[in-house]
Design a protein around this nucleic acid. Structure first.
Lengths: 392, 392
DNA sequence: CAAGAGGTCGAAATGTTTTCGACACTCTCG
DNA sequence: CGAGAGTGTCGAAAACATTTCGACCTCTTG
């Protein structure tokens, strides 16, 4: 773009001449026809790439460019936030998003189809390509960006994440600073990079304050409601239950809150809960959820920009970008109850009516006042970490 | 497909001949070039459609067919539910979804671009096309299905909706049967078809039980949290506040619950709340939300199937399909408080600790037992209305 | 009314795809 | 072994599509 004269676009004829075949044969390679010998095909393909050949059909300006967006599962509000960012950023480049779920790893034809369909790029969200798929796409030069990679991606794969570790740290430190000492963690699936990072942040905070890390307080679920609910029930039922729970996602946090309710505990008076994500609903939970904000839409936006940049041929500043998380303090966290365990009214029992205690209505956190009338706009305040970009 | 010989695909030349212009001119129309007089362009376009002309460039893509899915806004969990159904159904026909937001009504070129991009269909969600866009797409024969149309669509537009009226009725009757008499409604924007239908269902129920419809208890917001929150605050602050609120969406219902909390009222003891949608989070709210279930994913699935059916050339059984809503009773509804108004602790005050009262833990609704361990799978029980299909 | 500007269109040049037949090779089967 | 059928690979030419550029027209403006 920047350098080099336009220099007469590559044409089938010159490629054919250099390859020592007819135009017809080159055309067949371009269009993926069968009747070309593998060796011939390979030779021609190399030349096509060298010459940056683009078929006229693909050159039509009228055909909108498309980027595939592949989700692991289309089953949480999480996905729509990402998608919003992606479509917004793509839209600025008159490109659109093709949404799909992760294909079966056994589906050998997928990369081929993707390429033949002439997609301009691929964004993969919280899931991983098989090695085979990845290399096939890479050799074909399809721009690829991974959001929240399952595992630490190779240095050659562009990816966008957030500072999960810092988020876990901030959340846990917040709980510690409120006076909590028995803090449980309900994390996501242990094989996910982000789960591990968040959990390590938790461990780091616990450790740093000289609290013993109790393995019994560390649980794993999927990132969904159910996992939080089930694990929380089990935690609350144990000998010496935690006074606070750091959940690996907002959805899990809701499950935890529900579990507390089922057990007759009040949040935050009897149990503090911190989530992770800051989905729009977090502000509207009862009580409004203290959580670690992930700029989901921004992640989508960033990923889309990166794909477009790669597609345009320019190099990325960094192959790995991490956006800042930030703690958003709302009302699901409070100091732990005074007496070591005034809890568990005889199963199914009523809430013990104790004397005057800070009602949920009392302004306590800095965020609360803003939250009541103003709402979400002021939510992002209180970030603990500055934006940071690291190189892989 | 079924009938007719392949009959020599349409070519630029024949269209040019019939239109009485040169191939060059037709090519320009196909590619959206500027230098074609409007009259000429229109004439040629009509012929192109008649001949089902597809440019070779577009023909090359033997791979994935695409359907555009246009959302009014990509900002609620609502959207992802719909999208999930759409992608699932499209996937079965190896078709993919291109997601975008509603284009600017002033964007004259949009239908053109859509057609030139060779899309196989269009699904529009909760929004309306301008008349101009619609007719342009219709004359080009692009398969179109509208989900939850803003207004009653013409008989020639296929659409998918739910039995909003029945849902509003069921929700309100549930509240009435619990003993409520002052029941407020916070509906969506009055210009939306679904808002009006839900509200009319509410009115019908109120009316049928000989209760006076109090206009002061009927409010409108957008379908989001904020609207529910603001309207609920205002309702709770009025002279004779309602004992129950029927919200036009789950998100609004969350806003209502939050408003109750801010005012020191308990749900459901002091205020019953019914939502609409049954988003996955509804089951995980505190308390779990009684709501009217809309089969969002099914709506998406149905719309996708209809688009594919139209694209395949077969006629639809009916141009208008309404899927059944069903009341899901959880724990945000209960009989109204005994004494006419034991409410409002002096602003900002603490919750009055009254004597033994049914704790949230006491099994009360049939759904609760199922909900605790089993969760969402059993949620759909209790539908009030059978599936129904009506013709426009 | 002349000069200029700008819109509309097609001839021809240019580029791409498809069809179809040539050729070479392999694999039967007699 | 050798004829014939089958198959894979490729190119010549035909068919198809797009772009360039100039002709022609109309409308404005001085």
């Amino acid at each position: 773009m920047a350098p080099g004269r336009p220099e007469r676009r590559a044409t089938l004829a010159v490629v054919a001449h250099e390859a020592g075949v007819s135009m017809a044969t080159v055309s067949k390679v371009v269009n993926g026809r069968a009747d070309v010998a593998p060796a011939t095909r390979a030779r021609i393909e190399r030349l096509l790439v060298q010459h940056r050949y683009v078929p006229v059909g693909a050159r039509r300006t009228t055909t909108s460019a498309l980027v595939d967006v592949v989700f692991n599962a289309l089953d949480s509000p999480w996905a729509i936030e990402i998608l919003r960012g992606v479509t917004a950023a793509l839209g600025e480049a008159s490109t659109q998003a093709v949404v799909s779920s992760m294909p079966d790893p056994a589906d050998i034809g997928w990369p081929r189809r993707l390429l033949l369909a002439g997609r301009n790029g691929l964004i993969v969200v919280t899931s991983d390509l098989t090695e085979r798929h990845r290399t096939e796409l890479a050799t074909a030069g399809l721009p690829l960006v991974v959001i929240d990679p399952v595992d630490l991606p190779g240095a050659d794969v562009a990816s966008v994440g957030t500072t999960n570790w810092a988020g876990g740290l901030a959340a846990t430190e917040h709980l510690i600073s409120l006076g909590h000492r028995r803090i449980a963690a309900i994390s996501g699936p242990p094989q996910l990079l982000c789960s591990r990072a968040r959990l390590d942040g938790y461990r780091a905070a616990i450790d740093q304050h000289g609290i013993r890390v109790d393995q019994g307080l560390i649980r794993h679920g999927d990132f969904h409601h159910e996992g939080g609910f089930v694990q929380a029930l089990s935690l609350l039922d144990c000998e010496e239950p935690p006074t606070a729970v750091f959940a690996g996602s907002d959805q899990q946090a809701f499950g935890v809150i529900e579990a507390a309710r089922v057990r007759g505990l009040r949040v935050p008076q009897d149990l503090s809960v911190v989530g992770f994500d800051d989905l729009p609903v977090a502000r509207w939970a009862s009580p409004p959820l203290t959580t670690v904000r992930q700029p989901l839409a921004d992640m989508g936006r960033m990923a889309a920009r990166m794909v477009l940049r790669i597609a345009a041929g320019s190099r990325l500043d960094s192959n790995r970008v991490e956006l800042a998380t930030g703690l958003v303090v709302r009302e699901s966290t409070a100091p732990p109850p005074r007496r070591s365990s005034p809890r568990r009214s005889p199963a199914g029992g009523q809430q013990p009516a104790r004397g005057p205690q800070p009602s949920a209505d009392t302004p306590k956190t800095p965020e609360q006042q803003a939250a009541a009338p103003g709402g979400p706009s002021s939510d992002a305040a209180g970030t603990t970490t500055p934006p940071m970009r690291g190189s892989a």
